[in-house]
Write a protein that binds this DNA or RNA. Structure first.
Length: 353
DNA sequence: CAACATATCT
DNA sequence: CAGATATGTT
């Protein structure tokens, strides 16, 4: 098989679909090696076979491992059969030949067409290929781990798509890819760790504005990088064998049982967050529109050594609304009386409904 | 339905 | 433009 294309020919092709897994069947070892190297220079992943039966057994044992086959047909014709074509029906197959005999070429084309029409690749297979072409990101456990590490390294208040992207250093990954994944990640964490994590994600902006404009008077550490109590980096645990070595659809387990956390609460201010008493970092008003509008001169803490709390009504309104729309989150401190005043029975906020 | 992408809002 | 969120697609 003669191959003249080079990677350079494709340099003008923006967004060339990389990473397609190609099964290459060519009984000529030398020719196979040459084609393989050419294809690899174009970012295909090439699996070479010099024997039809080996190729076929690979296809049948792990059909998802190949997107497309390229077969050299010069040697097929000994017995006039196109065994590969007939057997690997779900694999789009490109036939190539250096046999200059017109009748052989036509036979190849005709048989290929007939086989294709009789049994075109399944939709799943075509979708799989298409996803590669359109660069759909496959969030493998490895990639996800990188993502989580980046998020963790940045800390919750800095974990935004562009920075995560930078830290991950994954070629081809876009900010949009990361943003999309981050969205899902946050959603899961909110449900899994509503008490601290969820609220931190939700109120990050408010807290930032707060910290810039109102120095905390209380004994709390600044809301900053080391504020990351979090529940530590959460590493996805892929059920043993939940994801076969190569490609079957991954099952990402976000559930809390799917993670382990190296972090252990130590004594200290942050562990108090669990009790919900320690503080009012979460005591709510929205500072987004009026950063200076926080009329509470200080956050309340349980020792009652601080001043009274006079949030504006509008702020209370917003707070109530938010609390009601996020019932799975703990009730902000001080809100309970307000709710009962309104006839809203305050079911224990910690109960998950 | 989950797991992405893409559109829309801020 | 970037980020958050809503909506669409497979």
């Amino acid at each position: 098989m003669v191959c003249t294309a080079t990677a350079n020919d494709l340099s003008a092709w923006k967004d060339f679909p990389k990473g397609l897994r190609v099964l290459l069947l060519d009984e000529d070892t030398k020719s196979a090696a040459e084609i393989k190297s050419k294809l690899e220079s174009m970012d295909y992943i090439v699996y070479t076979f010099c024997n039809e039966n080996e190729a076929l057994s690979a296809v049948s044992s792990r059909p998802e491992s190949f997107h497309v086959a390229i077969i050299e047909v010069s040697t097929i014709n000994n017995n006039g059969s196109f065994k590969f074509l007939e057997t690997a029906k779900d694999l789009p197959t490109i036939m190539a030949s250096n046999v200059h005999c017109i009748s052989t070429m036509m036979k190849c084309i005709a048989l290929g067409a007939v086989e294709f029409l009789r049994k075109p690749p399944s939709e799943d297979k075509l979708r799989d290929i298409w996803q590669h072409v359109v660069h759909k990101v496959d969030w493998t456990p490895e990639l996800h781990t990188k993502f989580v590490q980046a998020v963790d390294e940045l800390g919750i208040d800095q974990a935004i798509p562009s920075r995560i992207l930078k830290l991950m250093k994954v070629e081809g990954l876009t900010r949009h890819n990361v943003a999309s994944h981050l969205q899902k990640y946050r959603m899961h964490r909110r449900h899994i760790l509503p008490k601290e994590d969820g609220r931190k994600w939700l109120q990050r902006h408010k807290m930032q504005s707060y910290m810039y404009t109102n120095k905390p008077i209380t004994a709390f550490p600044p809301y900053h990088s080391n504020y990351v109590i979090s529940v530590g980096p959460l590493y996805p645990m892929w059920g043993a064998g939940a994801r076969a070595p190569s490609h079957p659809p991954s099952i990402q387990m976000w559930g809390v049982q799917g993670y382990y956390s190296p972090w252990q609460p130590t004594e200290g201010w942050h562990s108090k967050l669990y009790t919900g008493v320690s503080l009012s970092l979460y005591a709510i008003p929205s500072f987004q529109q009026n950063p200076t509008g926080f009329h509470c001169s200080c956050a309340m803490d349980q020792r009652r050594n601080c001043v009274e709390h006079h949030p504006e009504e509008e702020v209370i309104e917003r707070t109530v609304r938010e609390a009601m729309s996020k019932l799975w989150l703990p009730l902000p401190l001080g809100l309970k009386p307000e709710l009962s005043r309104r006839g809203i029975s305050t079911i224990d906020a910690s109960c998950s409904c």
